[in-house]
Design a protein around this nucleic acid. Structure first.
Length: 923
RNA sequence: GGGCGGCUAGCUCAGUUGGUUAGAGCGUCACAUUGACAUUGUGAAGGUCAGAGGUUCGACUCCUCUGUCGCCCACCA
């Protein structure tokens, strides 16, 4: 009686997972410095976790990310590398602030920021962020993530703040960060600037108005934003456009809806002569394109829309204070009344809206902070092996070269194209935000300094003061992360959240602290960045920017991009659709391992994955299958269970009385180890898992274990196989494997056991040959078993087959005399055998249960029909293959390997055909 | 408007530089059940690889075009 008989028949994940995780964490194996000796000698391998936003809870996308990264880390840890996985969270600036504002408004506040003030408001935001972080920590643990909690980081903690300030200062000193007065994206709802990437487009329709400014104006223009035309300072036409040739260069005045405007007629290539009237009213204040034109032609800027989304005084007294929409309607009406409106047409339009909140985004000229991506600067260190310290380069060049040179490899490959495309179109990055939650810009101003800053002055913008800060232009400016004392005031703006995220790979390792130099040197560049393709631009590109700039090296060697997790119909999971699958709901129901498998299998990098509860359920079943396979092996082994084999590969040659089936399963395991290892190395997780499943389910459970039921004395091999598959599965399904490992009695923790090696020097037969032999053995075993059943228990497993075999010798003879036939049939996955003089009947196939399966009588007519069908399928194949082989061109050009393969298959098919014909003849 | 990707069995997806009769899982159907596992086993059915051309001895694979679905970028004002 073995203690394993008491093991439950079904694996209960929820009763063991938390304890197992706690034991791992307590044992210190997540911390690279506490790993066993062999890992200390191994190569460092570091992944920095993409920090989830502290905006709530984790979703399926995070679960996928954690599952994939944990596979990578566990795999490398078992392979003996010194693994470090740094967890962390992101303050997510605007996203979190918006979320908290919405919550406070639900609680009844009208304008939370005004009502609470900066300090109180930030307290609430930070409280929310901390709560969220606690939830996230729990969820990350639930997923089984083997990350080092002692090194957890936060994008807004003190150390990261130092990194941000240091980076800002360096970039400012290098003049890559610049304060400039430019047209920026402005979100009137949340009263902040946005980067280009935070602006989305929404398809709507708009009225395209065609009109002249006033009755005397010689040019007709078109626009969907008539209210901005108060700010027009030019009308641009294409240089080759003959219609306006005589007007180009003149400056005209007009009375546009009661406001005097002065417009210069200019010629610019950017104008499409085919569109509308071929003339474009240039509004430098409210269009980035127009702003570019204005720079080229040195045009003044007149701001007519304010930060509140209402018309400014420069729109004239009749319009000042109106909302943009009101003004638009009023302009249309006035133009119509005055008979200036030539046409009004509805056209489709892509309206820029804010990523958060969805409000239409205005383009306004403002003084903001920018990172200049096209500005040459002197490098502070040797960079990417191409530039020497002191050489000049632009950020764009660094970002391009990092990927172009292959120092960063992107999986899947096609995202390289997307990356380069984005870089090519990249404009300066506006990094200042008028929100409160985030890294405050480390710049201080002192008022009333005598010097002026004429370079910051722009015409027609209510100049002289910065409306956001109340700061006078005559101000001294210093970069510092601590107060400069009396009279100095800090810039109230905060930085774009992606600024701090950009530093993530090295700020988490302690940069710029000098004490952190060793761990920087050890773990940076990190091994791989694993994240969703949707933040390739937001984040990945910016990490490359920051790392190549500050360190002269890439932040990571590989980028692995996973797809988005969608529902079973391919829709995005969203609360409003009610199709959200929550990892925290699925885990208690199916177990973490099943959830992980369902996110790993059947997925390809860069490709969205569809997830359904049925899929998770399927993998729960597999988890249970693995449990029962293990349980069976342990029952076979019996006693106190397995001994520890240590980490050395089994000495196959030392096992006595190995049968062909033993050799086959060991060779097959060998192949599986090699193949799975290679696939994980190549980030082919799904394929690796499938291979492993095939081995576990088909080879091991369906065949070898059936043999083991009959042939005894396989304890050592079974133990070895169990040990190996637990190891191989561990990165994918850590909990159940660790649980079985302990139950079985293996030493130490599976998590730090050594990854199986492909055994060397094993004189293995080809798998194909062994597979055939395996089937003979099963065949013999089954006959033996059936005879035993008949003899011992009086069970008649095969009613209509008269076994006349009475000794093992006879079985052997039977096999030998039918070797060719069996060989052919074995290939077809079925084994049939002539056992009676009456003709062909089914004997058995597959597993031992088949022995019982064939209890039902075989219908000779059915069998005949089947064989005839088989023949019908074989004939055209044989014919066409023969023809192909005869073809001279084919024979001369196709590789020998292919020809030989075809010949072998043909021969096989012909043999099969012959055998079937013979059998049919006898029937 | 530019770019990228998908279209392979009823569903979800593999298919490695063109090469031996295109694969898996799920689902369906049939059969089985004293056996580690009903969260099971065996077997079957099911595909002119979106369509049309082209290159080649040979195309799911390469090229061109078309269709279709989706994504990213882009303020024809």
């Amino acid at each position: 009686m073995s203690r394993f008989e008491e093991l439950p028949k079904a694996y209960d994940a929820s009763s063991v997972e938390d304890d197992i995780y706690a034991a791992w964490e307590a044992s210190g194996v997540f911390d690279p410095d506490k790993l066993p000796e062999r890992n200390q000698k191994g190569a460092p391998y570091c992944i920095v976790m993409p920090p989830p936003n502290r905006t709530g809870t984790l979703h399926m996308g995070h679960a996928a990310m954690l599952a994939i990264e944990d596979v990578m880390i566990r795999f490398e840890r078992m392979r003996g590398k010194k693994t470090l996985w740094i967890p962390g969270t992101d303050h997510a600036a605007i996203a979190t602030q918006v979320k908290v504002e919405q919550l406070l408004m639900k609680e009844g506040m009208k304008d939370p920021r005004k009502e609470l003030g900066r300090e109180k408001f930030l307290e609430r935001v930070m409280q929310f962020a901390d709560d969220s972080a606690n939830t996230i920590r729990k969820q990350v643990r639930k997923m089984g993530s083997s990350c080092d909690w002692t090194r957890e980081k936060y994008t807004l903690d003190e150390e990261r703040s130092r990194a941000v300030n240091e980076m800002f200062k360096r970039m400012y000193d290098d003049k890559i960060i610049e304060r400039g007065y430019r047209v920026v994206n402005w979100d009137p709802q949340f009263q902040t600037t946005l980067s280009d990437d935070e602006v989305l487009t929404k398809e709507t329709t708009a009225k395209l108005l065609t009109f002249t400014y006033d009755k005397d104006f010689p040019i007709t223009i078109s626009t969907t934003r008539p209210e901005t035309k108060f700010g027009d300072t030019a009308v641009a036409v294409h240089p080759t456009d003959k219609r306006y040739k005589d007007l180009v260069g003149k400056t005209l005045t007009a009375n546009f809806c009661g406001k005097q405007i002065k417009v210069k007629i200019i010629a610019d290539e950017a104008v499409d002569p085919e569109f509308g009237t071929g003339a474009l009213g240039v509004t430098p204040a409210h269009s980035m394109i127009d702003a570019d034109i204005a720079v080229r032609h040195d045009l003044p800027t007149v701001q007519v829309i304010g930060k509140d989304g209402k018309m400014t005084g420069d729109a004239g007294p009749a319009f000042s204070g109106l909302t943009v929409i009101e003004a638009r309607q009023k302009v249309e009406k006035m133009l119509g009344d005055a008979g200036l409106l030539k046409s009004v047409v509805e056209i489709p339009q892509n309206l820029p809206v804010a990523e958060r909140g969805g409000a239409p985004v205005e383009q306004l000229p403002m003084r903001q902070w920018f990172i200049r991506v096209n500005k040459k600067f002197a490098l502070r260190q040797d960079t990417l092996g191409r530039w020497k310290k002191g050489d000049e380069a632009t950020l764009k060049e660094l970002m391009t070269y990092a990927v172009e040179s292959g120092q960063i490899n992107i999986v899947p490959d096609q995202f390289k194209k997307t990356y380069f495309h984005w870089i090519n179109n990249l404009r300066d990055w506006c990094i200042s935000r008028q929100i409160w939650f985030g890294h405050q810009i480390p710049v201080w101003y002192k008022k009333k300094v005598a010097e002026s800053h004429p370079s910051l002055r722009r015409e027609g913008t209510g100049e002289g003061r910065n409306e956001a800060t109340g700061e006078d232009l005559q101000t001294e400016m210093m970069v510092s992360d601590t107060s400069l004392g009396e009279g100095w005031e800090r810039d109230p703006d905060t930085l774009d959240t992606w600024f701090s995220s950009g530093l993530w790979t090295f700020s988490t390792l302690g940069w710029p602290d000098k004490k952190a130099f060793d761990s920087m040197k050890e773990f940076h560049p990190t091994a791989v960045l694993e994240t969703g393709y949707d933040i390739l631009f937001f984040w990945v590109a910016r990490m490359i920017l920051m790392s190549t700039y500050a360190l002269g090296e890439v932040p990571f060697k590989d980028i692995y991009l996973h797809g988005l997790v969608r529902d079973e119909q391919g829709r995005k999971m969203s609360k409003s659709l009610g199709n959200v699958l929550d990892p925290l709901d699925l885990i208690p129901k199916y177990g973490t391992d099943a959830v992980r498998l369902s996110l790993l299998m059947g997925t390809t990098p860069g490709q969205d994955m569809k997830l359904s509860e049925a899929k998770v359920e399927g993998f729960r079943n597999f988890t249970n299958k693995l449990w029962n396979i293990s349980r069976f092996i342990l029952l076979q082994i019996g006693g106190d269970g397995v001994g520890a084999h240590g980490c050395a590969p089994i000495e196959i040659n030392n096992i006595k009385s190995k049968t062909l089936a033993d050799e086959w399963i060991l060779a097959s395991l060998d192949e599986t180890v090699a193949s799975v290892t290679q696939k994980i190395e190549k980030y082919e997780f799904s394929s690796a898992g499938e291979e492993l499943r095939d081995f576990t389910w088909s080879d091991l459970a369906d065949w070898y274990l059936e043999i083991a039921k009959i042939e005894k004395g396989k304890e050592q091999i079974l133990s070895h196989i169990l040990e190996s598959i637990l190891k191989l599965w561990h990165p994918f399904m850590p909990f159940v494997t660790e649980h079985i490992w302990k139950t079985a009695g293996f030493e130490n923790n599976l998590i730090i056991s050594e990854w199986p090696n492909q055994s060397e020097g094993f004189d293995k037969l080809s798998l194909e040959k062994l597979t055939l032999i395996k089937k003979f053995e099963i065949f013999i075993a089954l006959i033996t078993d059936m005879r035993r059943l008949r003899a011992e228990q009086g069970i008649e497993p095969v009613k209509f087959v008269e076994f006349s075999i009475t000794s093992d010798e006879e079985i052997k003879n039977l096999i030998n005399s039918n070797l060719e036939v069996i060989k052919q049939l074995a290939r077809a996955s079925d084994i049939r055998c002539e056992l009676t003089p009456d003709g062909w009947v089914t004997a058995m196939s597959g597993t031992a249960t088949i022995g019982l399966n064939v209890a039902g009588a075989v219908d000779i007519e059915k069998e005949k029909a089947k064989m005839q069908k088989e023949l019908a399928e074989l004939e055209p194949y044989i014919k066409s293959t023969k023809a192909k082989l005869k073809n001279k061109e084919f024979a001369s050009k196709a590789p020998a390997k292919v020809i030989e393969g075809m010949k072998a298959k043909l021969e096989e098919a012909e043999g099969k055909k012959k055998a079937i014909e013979e059998r049919l003849g006898k029937m």
